[in-house]
Structure formats: structure tokens, C-alpha cells
């Protein structure tokens, strides 16, 4: 029982980081309907960024969290303005090819630069844990989860209370309406993609403290992000976090009780079940 509880708590904490990554996809996919098939690749870039900053400059991930997120925002903004913008509204397979091309470039670029080996960040507290009764919780996971939660909350507030955030939501709800009332849709889309990538930048940085950076993670993360967004419900920010936690826990339990290599099998099974029984996702609006 105590062990199960331990596993679940670890899963919840990891799941929050997954959730933040998926949140980025939810924003991009939910607002622009662009299937960002390079999502996991961007996540892994962020992991490497955190790794390099730590190794070379000794900066801890939690310190570089915001700078990396900001840099990713800029990258996302520029990417949308240049490469992706012509593909908004185009057929899915065309977007898919574009982003798979981008993903291929990223993964192999990373392989070329860093090689296939996994790169861990060894923080002074990497192996510390908090003990609460019979619970032992990894310190890094707690920090990562708190960080993820904070960034997600900030994004939530942004969408709720700022003019730009409201305008982006308007674009997602009714594009023609938004254009008619004079919103600069192109600009808003660029900001949206920027925000999506900022989430990814933050999530990757946090992820680097609990998983070792390696190019081979990229594709799995892309699928993970899509799985979470669909399970949680497209267009629901809370849904992305809930989906992340759900997948985090399912992975942790399957990894512990069955086999680590089979953990994502359960995620995919969950995805199939949700697609069939509740295609709008757990917290999504009815389609």
C-alpha cells in the first residue's frame, strides 16, 4: 500500500511536467489546429539547453527556467511567422509533412551535436528526498512539479485576464468573427505558437532534472503530448494537466508493477478508449 502510494505520488509529480508540455500542444493545436508533430523534439532541445547551461555555466535548471522559456517564445514566434503560417488551415497531412521534416532535422541535428548518449543533470539534491511518514518523494520531482504548476498557472492567468489572451481565445472560438472585429490574427497566431513553445521550453527544462536528455526521447514525447491532449480534452487547459497527471500515474504504476518497457502501452490503450468513448476528451467541451 505504502509502495503503491509512493509510486502514485511520483507519477502525479512527473505527470504535472508532462501536463505542462501537453499544455503547449493544446494551445497550438487548440487555437490554430496545427498538428505540431515536432513537439517532443522541441522538448528535448529544451532539455539539452538546460543541460548545457548547467554543465558549462553551472546554472541550475530552476534558475534558467524562465530565460529558456522566453527564448523558446521568441523561436516559436519567429517560426510561426516564417515557416508555419502558410500552413495554417491547410490539409493535415501537409502540416504533418512539414513538421515531421522539422522533427527529423532537429533529432538528427541533436544526434550530430550530442551523440546518442543520455545526458543527466547531476544536481546537488538529485538524490535527496522528502520523507513524509512512509512516503519518500524525490526532491527534484517536487521542484519540477511545482515549477510546472506555476508556469501553467501563469499561462492560465494570461489567457483569462489579459487582452491578448482573450483575443487568442476569441480566435480559437470563432476565427472569422475574430478577423471581422479587426483582430490581427497572424500576430496572435505567432504569439500563440510562441506561448506553446514557451510551455515546451519550461517543460523540457524541468524534465531535464527528472529524465536524462537524449534524442531518442523526442518522438515518444511527441506522441505522449498528443495522447495527453486528447485524453484531457482539446481546448481545455485544465484538461491538459489532468491528462498529464493521469498518464504520469498510469506510466508509473505500469512501470512499477508490470514492466517499465510496457508503460506506454497503457497510455495508448487509454488513448484508444478515450477516442472511442469520449472523443472530446475528459474535460473537453462536447463536440
Amino acid at each position: 500500500m505504502a509502495i503503491t502510494l509512493n509510486v502514485i505520488v511520483q507519477g502525479v509529480l512527473t505527470g504535472l511536467v508532462y501536463g505542462l508540455m501537453a499544455l503547449g500542444l493544446s494551445v497550438i493545436f487548440g487555437v490554430m489546429r496545427v498538428v505540431n508533430f515536432a513537439h517532443g523534439e522541441f522538448t528535448v532541445i529544451a532539455m539539452y539547453a538546460a543541460f548545457i547551461l548547467f554543465e558549462m555555466l553551472g546554472l541550475q535548471p530552476l534558475i534558467v527556467l524562465l530565460p529558456i522559456a522566453a527564448a523558446f517564445f521568441v523561436v516559436g514566434y519567429l517560426l510561426q511567422r516564417s515557416l508555419i503560417s502558410p500552413f495554417v488551415g491547410r490539409a493535415e497531412h501537409e502540416q504533418f509533412i512539414l513538421l515531421v521534416g522539422l522533427a527529423t532535422v532537429i533529432v538528427n541535428g541533436l544526434l550530430l551535436v550530442f551523440g546518442p548518449d543520455a545526458r543527466p543533470i547531476n544536481l546537488p539534491y538529485s538524490f535527496d528526498s522528502y520523507a513524509i511518514g512512509s512516503l519518500f518523494i524525490d526532491k527534484v520531482r517536487v521542484y519540477a512539479a511545482l515549477g510546472a504548476f506555476a508556469v501553467a498557472a501563469a499561462l492560465f492567468l494570461f489567457f483569462r485576464y489579459t487582452r491578448t489572451g482573450t483575443a487568442i481565445r476569441a480566435c480559437a472560438d470563432n476565427l472569422t468573427g475574430a478577423a471581422v472585429v479587426g483582430l490581427d490574427v497572424k500576430q496572435l497566431y505567432a504569439v500563440t505558437f510562441g506561448l506553446g513553445l514557451a510551455c515546451v521550453g519550461a517543460a523540457g527544462t524541468l524534465m531535464a532534472t527528472i529524465a536524462d536528455a537524449s534524442p531518442s526521447l523526442a518522438q515518444a514525447y511527441t506522441l505522449l503530448a498528443f495522447t495527453i491532449v486528447i485524453i484531457g480534452g482539446l481546448g481545455s487547459m485544465v484538461g491538459a494537466l489532468v491528462g498529464g497527471v493521469l498518464i504520469g500515474v498510469s506510466e508509473a504504476l505500469a512501470g512499477f508493477y508490470i514492466q517499465p518497457s510496457m508503460k506506454s502501452m497503457f497510455s495508448f490503450a487509454l488513448l484508444i478508449i478515450v477516442l472511442v468513448l469520449r472523443p472530446q476528451g475528459l474535460l473537453g467541451r462536447r463536440l
Binding site: G101, T104, N108, G109
Partner: peptide, 14 residues
């Protein structure tokens, strides 16, 4: 550098 081929491949797709 086997990756270079794939990078070029990816670029070509784009």
C-alpha cells in the same frame, strides 16, 4: 555522420 543525410532529407521534405 549518418545524421547529415537525414537532416537533408528533413529539409527536403519541408
Amino acid at each position: 555522420a549518418p545524421g547529415v543525410k537525414l537532416i537533408f532529407y528533413g529539409l527536403m521534405l519541408m
